[in-house]
Structures are given as C-alpha cells and as structure tokens.
Nucleic acid binder design. Structure first.
Length: 461
RNA sequence: GGAGAGGUGCCGGAGUCCGGUCGAUCGGGCCUCCCUGCUAAGGAGGUGACGGGGAAACUCGUCCGUGGGUUCAAAUCCCACCCUCUCCGCCA
C-alpha cells in the first residue's frame, strides 16, 4: 500500500531535475515561497554569502533574481492594462445606462483590445512566477550567522559531553552487549517476526520491551506538560502539509506515499504540528505557542541500506515525542534553548551519557537555520546515536506554511518563527537504556523516570 | 458511496434568480474620540490580507471555498473539484 510516489502527485518539478518522481508541473497552491524574495532583491549578496556557507544553491539564487525582476516588469505591465480595462468596463456600464450605445460600443471595443494584450503579459508573468516559486522551494534555508563554519558532520563542534562518554574504561563487560542480543535474550524485542510482517527495518517490541517503549513516550509527555499543549494530530497528511515543513519537494524519496489517496505518512510530528496554524494569523499574545505530540514516524531511509541498520539503529517506523513552538522572532533564541534543555534533561535523567553538537552550516538540514543535535552513547554497540535534533527554522517554514502573527504594537502582520526538537525518539533511546542499564546478571534496571509506567517493575529480566 | 442544502470580511448574515452604481448592505465584535463621579447605556468616526510602485501621503492590481471558462465587465452565468451540514447506506 505504501508507495513512494504517485502518478498524480502535485509537486512542482525540482530544479536540477534530480528527483526521480513523475512530478506534475503545477505547484502546490497553498504553499508560498520560502526565503523572503524581498531579501533576495535588496540584500542579494548577504543571502548568497549565507547560502554559500552551506555549499549550496547559489546558481539557483541568481536565476531567481533574474526571473523575479522580469516577472515584476511583466506584472506591472499587466496591472496597468488591467486598470485601464477596469476603468473602461465601468464606462461601458455607465454609458449603457445613459443610453449612449455608440459610446459604449467604442469603449467596449477598446477594452476588448486591451484585454487581449493583457492576456499575453499575464500568461508570461504567471509562467515566470511559477518558475521562481519552484526554484525557491528547492533552495534551503539560510544558516544562522552563529551557526559554525564547516562542510559536513566532521566539522560539527561538540558543545558538551555529559557522563563518561565513549571512554572504554567507563564501561563494564556486561554493558558491552548490543541491544538486539539483550532484546532476544529477555524476549522483549522480536525483530525477526517484525521483518516477517513488514520487511527489513521494521521492529516489534514485546512484553516489557513494549511497555518500556510506551513508558518512554509517556514520561516525555508528562514532564513537558507544564508548558506544552498535548496534541494528537493526524499521521497521514496532504501534500501541502509536507511541503510546508520542507520535507517536499526535495525529499520525495524519503517519504511513504499512499498513492490511491495521495496522502503521505508523516516522517515526524513536526509535519502536522507545523501546519496546525497554516494560513492563520496568530495574535502576538498567543506566542510563544508550545505544542507537543506523540506520534509514529515513517521514514523510507532510502539510500541508507546496510548502513547502521542493525537492530534499532535505523528503522522505518518508530514512535517519537516532538516538541514544537511558534514564536515571535525575538522569542526564538530563548525557546530554542528551552527545547534543547528539556530534551537534554530527560536523557540525563534516564542515566544516559550524551553529547550536544552544534551543527555546522554545511551539515544543517534543509529547512533549519541552526540546529543542536543530542547524541546518546550506546555502550553495547559502541556508537553515538542521534536522538534529537533541536532546530530553529527562523521564518523558512512559516513562510512556506503562511503562518503570521499580528504584532501588538504597530500594524500589519509578521511571519512567525518555528522551532522544534524531539523530546524523545523511542528506538535509539530504548537501545541506549537497555545497553547502559544492563546488569551483570543480564537483567536491565529500569531508570527512575520510567518507574511510574512499568506497572511496578524495577527491572526487566 | 447515494440524495439534498450550503461555503461571502474577525463573527453573524444580505447580495447570486435579472452580470456593471459590490471589496461588498446591515448587525455584532474590536480600536479611537465624545458624553458620564466609576461602570453600564448612549453618540461620532474607524476597522482585512496579499503583491507592485512610492520617502511618505497615497496609488494600482488581486482576493466572495478552489481551479478553469464565458464576457468589455463575474460574488452573481457555465464546468470541474474540495469542504461543511442534513438524510440514507456502510461500518470500527
């Protein structure tokens, strides 16, 4: 049932043409361009320099500038003619009422001629504007000024390490067992049968393993309920909803698509939560608006076959609790820090060792301006596992999703900022918990924050 | 899935039959001012979004569910689609 593409997908063609989908020419209707076009007009060099820090897309940017200038010329031409047509049409009505049918006929003929010219300009302007929008949708966000310099994962500065980290001396032999072995041994993870049902990279938790997975989500929700509204959104969404966050059109191949109904399985709750306020104007007093959701997440993980795919390291479906906020630009930095602190504190309280990375410009996700990754160290597999990406998107997503707010002072509307991060992603945290807290006798001690949810159990054996 | 009704501004609700004087009557809300010892009531005015131009005042364009069409001119006529409500059917 899940297919990666639809024959009737309404995606704009992606610049560069590297997407393989049968992608229709029409662009999504409710989705607006991305980087502020006005910035491209007025501060072209700044925008170009920022994009260059990603090592990305500056050619498209130049094309956007050229096309946009042309589209504006054509649009001005079109509007001028349209104004004349409107004026003449009013005259026709007035003249008819006065009984001057000769005058009316003349005005009508003139207006008709103008209308023909207008159509030409309008068609050209539409075409060019469509091309601009398509290009824009493919251009990533500008990195924040304070995002570190760098080209890829190797350049991400480690902001801090909490706990012993990957120091070999810090870990005992009984903790050096991979979670898939622990899971099988205790009967709490049944990967073989999951594969039987759904294929590779699908998982199944059983007995206290399933309880543990649910407990993780429950704990994540409960500890953030002081400030975040709990939401249970749909997990299958329309194309526009996927485009709003930046997951489409660029990453078609990473998403599951229900072809028959042209719906997409969400890769993260960020997708529906970001569209919650789509096309709305919020009051400034509503900001920051904090939301959290526990949802399944679906990822095709195209192109990662064979890489880190053992056990729970990389799976097609997993549960996650996501924290998300809409904020006024001035609030964004503080909310970013808050979401990071909340995500960190749960990991810390689970007794896991972790580190925080400040993603460099070249490693930033498509939509993000600044991202901190939390990586947990899993001693059994001896790997750092990314368990949360806490990102500030500035106005990039909000522009796509057309989410604005009305400032309390002054008039007009402003585009909001969006931020989000995982409070908890189940499989990798599950793996790290089970490996970290494995006891010499092979049982797994339940860490404190989860005790309320394990039906009285303090250990899994 | 079938039948019927409907979708208009922040909200309610006219206008659609008979196209022009309709970006849109009226009421509510909200904002400013007046009146008032305070509050309520009352009076006057104002109140959208988006794009282009402009230093600004302002101005041009677009927006009546969405997309197309007819016309000199569309909220109004035509076509397709979406959504909501009511009834029927089907069900967890």
């Amino acid at each position: 049932m899940f297919r990666k593409r639809s024959r009737r997908a309404t995606l704009p063609a992606v610049a560069g043409g590297q997407t393989t989908g049968t992608v229709a020419a029409e662009a999504p209707t409710n989705v607006h361009p991305v980087i502020d076009l006005r910035r491209i007009r007025t501060e072209y060099d700044v925008v170009e320099a920022a994009l260059a820090r990603r090592g990305d897309a500056t050619a498209e940017l130049g094309e956007v500038r050229t096309l946009d200038a042309r589209a504006r010329e054509l649009g001005a031409e079109r509007d001028g003619i349209r104004a004349q047509v409107n004026a003449l049409s009013k005259q026709v009505g007035a003249l008819r009422r006065e009984g001057d049918s000769a005058g009316a006929d003349a005005a009508q003929a003139e207006s008709r001629a103008l209308g023909e010219r207008e159509k030409v300009f309008a068609a050209q302007a539409d075409e060019i504007n469509g091309a601009v929008r398509t290009l824009l949708l493919g251009i990533p966000n500008l990195p924040a000024d304070d995002a570190p310099e760098g080209a890829g994962p190797a350049d991400n500065p480690i902001v801090k390490v909490v706990g012993p980290g990957d120091d070999p001396a810090a870990w005992a032999e009984h903790q050096r067992v991979p979670h898939w072995d622990i899971g099988t041994e205790l009967g709490i993870l049944d990967l073989e049968r999951a594969v039987k049902m759904s294929g590779a990279m699908f998982t199944m938790f059983r007995r206290q393993g399933a309880t543990l997975a649910r407990a993780l989500c429950q704990a994540a929700l409960d500890r953030n309920a002081d400030a975040f509204e709990e939401v249970r959104p749909p997990t299958v969404v329309l194309t526009d909803t996927m485009v709003s966050t930046g997951h489409l059109p660029k990453f078609v191949d990473d998403a599951y698509h229900l072809e028959r109904d042209d719906l997409w399985a969400i890769p993260t709750a960020e997708v529906p939560l970001t569209s919650l306020a789509r096309d709305e104007i919020l009051a400034e007093s509503d900001l920051p608006m904090r939301l959290m959701a526990h949802t399944p997440c679906f990822r095709r993980e195209a192109g990662s076959a064979g890489r880190d795919t053992r056990g729970l390291l990389r799976v097609h479906e997993f549960d996650k609790v996501e924290l998300l906020a809409y904020a006024a630009p001035t609030q964004a930095a503080q909310i970013h820090a808050e979401i990071l602190a909340r995500a960190e504190s749960l990991i810390a309280d689970l007794g896991l060792t972790y580190r925080v990375l400040d993603l460099c410009a070249g490693d930033l996700g498509n939509s993000a301006a600044r991202t901190f990754d939390i990586e947990v160290y899993a001693p059994g597999v001896d790997q750092w596992l990314e368990v949360s990406s806490v990102s500030w998107f500035a106005d990039y997503q909000a522009r796509r999703a057309n989410i604005r707010y009305r400032p309390a002072e002054g008039k007009g509307t402003e585009v909001v900022h969006t931020l989000n991060g995982s409070a908890l992603a189940v499989p990798r945290v599950w793996a790290a918990v089970v490996e970290t807290h494995r006891q010499p006798d092979g049982s797994v001690r339940v860490p404190g924050p989860l005790l309320p949810y394990l039906r009285g159990a303090t250990e899994i054996r």
